[in-house]
């Protein structure tokens, strides 16, 4: 157990991150009760391991990594691991198949429900990196640390997530027209 001064520092660093940790746990598990359990366990583990945290490094990336590992041992994650994820194929993804007109790339993003639905439909592994990047503001190298993959994989997953999200929104737009 860390010394009291260490505990106080941990509290100071972790307290502002609670809403983000809960929100991310919810996106991972899609369940409020499980999200709370995951965050509780994450706090408990992080506090016990706080002595191994190197001051000056990114605490947010460190604690998000613990959160993710905690999620991976949860019931939901174990069940989800049965689904197959097509691994990253940069050669297939990094192509420039342009839409018929450039303006077709512009979407009407004022429909919150459609955006929410499209995000929900993303593969969990793609949604995870996208949220760590766009919502949590982590850099690619920090995301690589959190999810334990090479930085190139982070880049291709983010790219693929945005492309898939864009396609979902375009399809929804086509249906609504």
């Amino acid at each position: 157990m860390p010394a009291p001064a260490s505990s106080a520092l941990f509290e100071q660093l972790a307290l502002p991150l609670l809403p983000s940790l809960y929100s991310h746990a919810f996106w991972l598990s899609r369940n409020h009760e499980e999200a709370e359990d995951i965050v509780q366990e994450t706090i408990s583990k992080a506090l016990r391991a706080f002595d191994s945290f190197h001051a000056g490094t990114n605490f947010k990336a460190w604690v998000f990594r613990i959160l993710r590992n905690t999620f991976l041992t949860s019931r939901t994650a174990i069940a989800a691991s049965r689904t197959v994820f097509l691994e990253d194929h940069p050669d297939l993804l990094n192509i420039s198949d342009m839409s018929p007109t450039p303006e077709d790339h512009l979407l009407r993003l004022d429909n919150q429900a459609a955006m929410d639905q499209a995000l929900d439909r993303l593969h969990p592994q793609l949604r995870e990196v996208l949220l760590l990047c766009d919502v949590e503001g982590l850099k690619y190298k920090e995301i690589a640390l959190v999810i334990d993959v090479p930085i190139g994989t982070v880049m291709s997953r983010i790219s693929r997530a945005r492309r898939t999200l864009h396609e979902h929104l375009q399809k929804q737009r086509g249906v609504s027209l």
Partner: peptide, 30 residues
């Protein structure tokens, strides 16, 4: 388009509000 999508992703997620009672319990745990 990509910039707009990035902003919209952030905006959608920010609308998610942590239940206050859950936040209270987690804060107490800290």
């Amino acid at each position: 388009s990509a910039t707009q999508l990035k902003a919209a992703t952030r905006h959608v997620s920010e609308r998610f509000v942590v239940p206050p009672e859950a936040l209270s319990r987690l804060t107490a745990q800290l």
